[in-house]
Design a protein around this nucleic acid. Structure first.
Length: 216
DNA sequence: AAGTCCCG
DNA sequence: AAAT
């Protein structure tokens, strides 16, 4: 029997407010996802994914690369944005047009008109990879939001408060979901739990996350 | 110097 | 298994 009243699989994206300044745009990037994944491959052909080392000397489980005028990097000396890839000395690849358009549209849907990111961090999670609770606070200003796009396998996102000790809410993020946080939530702690093994038709065994920022 | 986008 |  058909139950199209409850079948949202081909419907429009919808929004779920998480808290003041935080919204999940469910399936917002679903239609452009194939283009986004292809563009990730092009960026990675110029600036390959790598496991950066934190100031504590440990390697991050998520592999990262960047696009844009500025890229986020970490090494033993700290966390920072810089215009060049430390592995090659070259400028980071440009942010693909499909990325910029999505970031602008998602920010606008969340109430931020005219978002033009100058930094895109691309994270690749494979089985076992995670991201501990942290703040995005290496940018020069915090008036623009963070726009975070999930592609491929699902993962549990945690979104906390201004102090690490604030209990985070858990949100399952699936393919095409976009989270936007800004205003009072701009500096809130967030992270993701360990990625479980799985298979996705577009990305295979991994999850990609694009985060767009205005860093400079 | 402090804190840690890390680990156990 | 997650939280601390």
């Amino acid at each position: 029997m058909t139950t199209d009243l409850f079948d949202l699989s081909d419907g429009e994206p919808w929004q779920e407010p998480v808290g003041e300044g935080v919204v999940v745009l469910r399936r917002f990037a679903r239609n452009t996802a194939p283009d986004l994944v292809q563009a990730i491959g092009k960026v990675a052909s110029k600036a390959p994914f790598r496991h950066m080392v934190t100031p504590g000397g440990r390697s991050m489980s998520a592999a990262m690369t960047c696009a844009g005028e500025l890229g986020w990097v970490t090494d033993r000396s700290g966390y920072r944005y810089q215009s060049t890839d430390p592995e090659s000395g070259l400028l980071w690849p440009e942010i693909p047009e499909s990325f910029k358009e999505l970031a602008r549209n998602a920010a606008e849907a969340a109430g931020y008109r005219g978002f033009v990111p100058d930094a895109c961090l691309i994270n690749r999670y494979q089985r076992g990879a995670r991201m501990g609770l942290h703040q995005d606070k290496d940018e020069q200003e915090f008036s623009w939001p963070i726009v975070s796009v999930s592609l491929g396998l699902p993962i549990t996102f945690q979104f906390g408060g201004p102090r690490r000790s604030d209990k985070p809410v858990k949100i399952l993020l699936e393919h095409g979901d976009v989270v936007v946080w800004g205003g009072p939530a701009r500096l809130f702690y967030h992270g993701v739990l360990t990625l479980k093994a799985g298979h996705h038709p577009l990305t295979g065994s991994c999850r990609y996350n694009l985060t767009f920022r205005r860093a400079g």
